[in-house]
Design a protein around this nucleic acid. Structure first.
Lengths: 267, 267
DNA sequence: CGGCCCGTTGATATGACTCAAATAAGGTGG
DNA sequence: CCACCTTATTTGAGTCATATCAACGGGCCG
């Protein structure tokens, strides 16, 4: 109950900022920037050279401010988005409004794939920083010519990897204790930053403890305590949003820290 | 530890039956039956009429006995399979061999989608009854002509729905108490049977309590106790593998049964 | 018959949640 | 720039749900 109320207030805070969706009504939207197909393919790591060398700026960008909603469950599926910059969160809510955070997209990630199956988005997507997205109109994905086939194929691969990732998270949530869940979360975040060219060892968390908890199936208090524990034993330096990973290997192996109590009793 | 050992013994029991995979070496495999494209499309609920009316029996069937392995993590991705009859389970194992059950495919379900992303299957698939599968060679999915486009499009939709389903399970495992998890499991199984033309109210569980527990992030004891509770309060009749759902609505709403203790203390 | 799973049930331990309070950080308006 | 309000975070104490450990019965198969 209290849990549910927190989510509600959180939701209303987000909604008040901007509820107008620019999707499907592009003439009202004044674009800031465009990307060429080549730039888009680089971002998505599609390796093939562009065939027609038509380096027109075909792909429109769109900017959102922090806390703005990009799309909501039930909205009609018109576009996919590729994150050009900034950070977001995606979530799914059941009929009672209980929210579960599903992912934290960042540069290079694709948003909106959940809309494909039923032509309606199933998840909510909210910016947690100022963001810039590249729009891929879904009609692009239904064309069967030239580079569009590469795009389709890549999207299929991305979707497949998203499924595998979600299944790993099923395992993490279902089978691992709190310490291991938080450890895996920090490691995967670090890895993502690393792939973007950062160190991967030290970074800032862009999301709240509450969102991390929802993502990992824990309460915010447990997340906070676990991070404090990591900090205390020197695995990780934690200072509010700032994270610095000191011992990647131990974090990877970790299931539970200091299983000392039982041993003390045994002695 | 004990958990891990159980899975290990379970695994070895499965492996001993038949470890030879007929994939990629079709000339050694003596087919039992073939399906036409029309039959396959019916099974997958692809609605369009077949264009060329080539009702050749293009699609090979393959049979497995209970406990046989269909494919394993790391195997090369050559085929998708559509379940023609029987029941299976899919699972993912981490580097320490801890197994997490991911799904229980049955008639009409597609197996092997996890191989698309990296050209290697990521999950293990095992028959939990005698099964008959229809083979879709993955080269079919890379062709861009006629009905194959319909097939591709359908597979994209199926993959998308699998992702959404996995995310729902993330929520179920991460946020709901044991009673609600088991309730949702029974309901979703019932719904699947219903879609196949059965009542959906009464059916047999094909999987063990251990597998249900792994699927839901619970121990087998908790699953057993929860089912016994449901039986006791009359929500569901449970007799070993046999299930009969009496009150679908209460099962849907249920988060926890008999929250009586707190109230008694309050009075 | 004997061994092996599978399932049930009970007793106990414990990890994570709940509730609560205090502190810190961030944004807003005067 | 400061005061104020809101939200985020930390930490503690107590409780509860589920895991763990253990014993037993039943069905199946060699």
């Amino acid at each position: 109950m209290a849990h549910s109320e927190k989510f509600q207030s959180n939701l209303s805070r987000i909604i008040k900022v901007d509820d107008a969706s620019p999707l499907g009504d592009t003439k009202d939207f004044r674009p800031r920037l465009w990307s060429s197909k080549q730039q888009l393919f680089n971002l998505l790591k599609i390796e093939s050279p562009i065939s027609d060398s038509d380096n027109l700026n075909d792909y429109q960008h769109i900017k959102y401010k922090s806390d703005q909603k990009i799309c909501a469950s039930g909205d009609m599926y018109n576009n996919l988005f590729v994150v050009y910059s900034g950070f977001l969160k995606t979530s799914w809510s059941d009929m009672n409004g209980n929210e579960k955070i599903l992912s934290f997209p960042m540069r290079g990630d694709v948003i909106g794939l959940d809309g494909i199956g039923r032509n309606e988005y199933q998840n909510d997507v909210v910016a947690i920083s100022d963001v810039e997205l590249i729009i891929i109109p879904n009609k692009k994905i239904n064309q069967y010519e030239n580079d569009d086939i590469l795009l389709q194929s890549k999207l299929l691969h991305i979707l497949c990897n998203e499924l595998i990732n979600s299944q790993k998270i099923e395992y993490i949530i279902g089978a691992l204790p709190a310490e291991a869940r938080v450890a895996k979360f920090l490691l995967s975040l670090g890895q993502k930053y690393h792939q973007l060219g950062f160190s991967g060892k030290s970074f800032n968390l862009r999301m709240t403890r509450n969102d991390i908890g929802s993502y990992l199936g824990l309460t915010l208090e447990t997340v906070s305590r676990t991070l404090s524990e990591f900090n205390k034993v020197g695995l990780v330096t934690v200072d509010q949003k700032y994270i610095c990973i000191h011992d990647t290997e131990r974090l990877k192996q970790l299931r539970r820290i200091t299983p000392v109590r039982k041993k003390l009793i045994d002695n």
